[in-house]
Amino acid sequence: PPQTPVRAAMNSIAQLRVDLITSGDQPSSNLAVYFKNCTVDPTEEVLQRVESLGLLFSQRFGQAVGPRCVGLGKQVPPGLNTEEKRLSVQNFSKLLNDSTFHTSLLACALEVVMATYGGSTFKNGGYSNGGVPVETDLCFPWILDVFQLTAFDFYKVIESFIKAEPSLSKDIVKHLERCEHLIMETIAWREDSPLFELLKRTREEGPVEQAEPPAT
């Protein structure tokens, strides 16, 4: 039977709940091994960061939607197996101790949850108990502002996140793709973007290889 928008949203929510219940709220044994293989074990720092960013998110989310604040899932998806195969290394100390990587990953996970539950409802105007209008546009790129994360860094995790979570619904993949396009087309080109510094550095280092001659 044809899917109504409500049915599609309900299915996405059901799928997300299954995914979250199946994966639990602790690092998988697989991820724990990667943590142990690191020169500096990032477990404690990851736990602390998830805690502090979780609090930050809850505060801002609470301010935005009013007092009906939601509980927050606490999971860091790994997706490192493909990296191990690709690079033939098991020590991901640098990556797994990188705060920007953690923040981007958590932002991506929260964006998935908000897109699944929120859809268009977060866009509607709202008022707090005191009758004061509250911030209600929680659509992307709101999460970047909450975590003070650059779009350029958020962009880096999108593809790996989708690859690592094959059960994401079609609508959510589409949503992440829209975020990606928005970053590519506008947000990454704003004045304070780290992209410009990177372009400058690449240029100073000189061209790595000759461009291919144009085809006839």
């Binding site: 997706g79 493909t82 990296e83 690709r86 690079l87 991901f92 640098k94 990556l95 990188d98 920007t100 990587f101 880096k156 995790v157 593809e159 790996s160 989708i162 690859k163 079609k170 993949v173 589409k174 992440l176 793709e177």
Partner: peptide, 21 residues
């Protein structure tokens, strides 16, 4: 139907993307 277009090549991944060296 909808499928995500994967842009990274086989030899690229998240490790390099976060490596600023």
């Amino acid at each position: 139907s909808h499928s995500y277009h994967f842009g990274l090549e086989e030899h690229e991944g998240i490790t390099e993307l976060f490596d600023s060296d």
